[in-house]
Simulated scan of single mutants.
Amino acid sequence: MKLNITKPLVVFDLETTGLDIVKDRVIQISYIKVTPDGREERNNIFVNPQRVIPDEVVALTGITNEMVKEAKTFKEIAANLKDAFAGCDFAGFNSNFFDIPMLAEEFLRAGVDFDFSKVRLIDAHSIFCRMERRSLAAAYQFYCGRKMEDDFPPHRADNDTEATYRVLMAQLDKYNPETADDPEKVLHNDMDELAALSKSNDNVDFAGRIVWKDMVDANGKPLLDGEGNPRKQEAFNFGKYKGWYVTDVLRKDPGYYSWMLSSDFTNNTKQVLTRIRMREFMNKKG
């Protein structure tokens, strides 16, 4: 099945020095850029993390320090990646929980402001969990009818990217409304629907330090938008101001903003907080 897209879709996967979004770094990024006319552009890039790759990561991925020693750093490739990804939506496997937040952090560390809030994020893992609830290897066997280890060496970004792409295409085939066996398991070939299925939380930032919270009036009654849906506003999801609207905290305790910027929060969290602060400043100025 051909993807029904109106703008390019980047199917990607990362390998990293570890799972800490703040402290760890990318060592490999692989992606398939699919255009609306069906063309597929593949790219596989090793990245110098400027630190030693832990032995357990070498054992897991097969990517050694020697393999990335002469590779460019993420900062050196960030501008080209931004150009390649401009105007694209993104898809991955468990990407909304790790790969997208890690990629956003790497862009910010490189001084490149790539705004993921303006793109659709499609997570084949989230779709799979809603439909069948398993892992990438199980998803590959379930949807593609083969064992993943028979087709790919495990734990390499390029191989996982190929497997994810095949799983996503097979998901669209299996849950095609015209051929699906179960009317309750229908998946339309539509990027908005896939992105909605991939979203599983109300996070504003990737780390979930700031979340969307329903707005209420002075009597505690929910405020609705023009279409009758609850209006939402950013609220803190941690610490002494958990549950408070961010704008209320910025007015009540301006020093909280400075504290967060100087503390060990992700760059993405700090970026989201700064955007809220600047928006409120401009609204007040206007």
Rank of each mutant, 00 (worst) to 15 (best):
G226T: 09
T17A: 12
N176F: 03
P154W: 08
I210T: 01
V272L: 06
A207M: 12
H125E: 09
M278V: 12
T17R: 04
H125M: 15
F74H: 03
F93A: 11
P153N: 02
D182F: 00
I100L: 03
R275T: 07
V10Y: 06
G243M: 01
N65C: 12
L81K: 01
D151R: 00
D158P: 04
T247K: 07
D217H: 08
H155P: 02
A138P: 06
E41R: 09
E76R: 02
Y256H: 05
D214G: 12
L194N: 05
K118V: 02
F142H: 15
V167H: 05
G208P: 10
R279L: 02
D89M: 08
V216C: 04
E40D: 13
N189E: 13
V249P: 01
A104H: 12
N283L: 14
A195G: 07
F85V: 01
G228N: 11
A137N: 04
F93W: 13
F74A: 07
F97H: 13
D113K: 05
D123N: 08
D214C: 08
K82W: 02
D20V: 01
A163S: 00
A207Y: 02
D182S: 04
G87W: 04
P49T: 13
I53T: 13
V10G: 03
M191V: 15
D182Y: 00
I122T: 03
R277K: 15
F238K: 03
D264M: 04
T164Q: 02
F98L: 05
N176T: 04
D89W: 06
I27H: 05
K270G: 04
K82Y: 08
G286F: 11
W259H: 14
A218D: 14
N4Y: 12
D89V: 05
V186F: 09
D225N: 15
T164A: 12
A84G: 02
N94T: 06
V112W: 00
R279D: 01
K240G: 09
A124I: 05
A124M: 08
E41I: 14
K252V: 07
M67A: 09
T73E: 04
I276M: 06
M67W: 05
G62Y: 04
V26I: 15
N65V: 07
E178H: 05
L60K: 09
A137D: 03
K23Q: 14
Q271M: 10
A170I: 05
F74R: 07
R275N: 14
A91E: 10
L19Q: 07
F206N: 06
D83F: 00
R146V: 05
S30G: 05
Y256V: 08
A170D: 13
L197M: 14
Q141T: 13
R42C: 10
M260D: 08
D253S: 11
N96R: 11
E41N: 10
P230Q: 10
K285T: 10
R251L: 10
R130I: 10
Q271V: 09
L14S: 06
C144S: 06
R39A: 15
V22A: 07
A195W: 00
H155Y: 11
S135D: 15
P8H: 10
T247G: 07
M215V: 14
K7F: 09
T164S: 11
S263R: 09
F85P: 11
L168N: 12
D214E: 13
G62N: 03
S198F: 03
I45L: 15
V186N: 12
R251F: 06
D99C: 02
R156P: 04
N203W: 05
G228P: 10
T17E: 11
E15W: 02
Y140G: 13
R109N: 15
F98R: 01
V26Y: 03
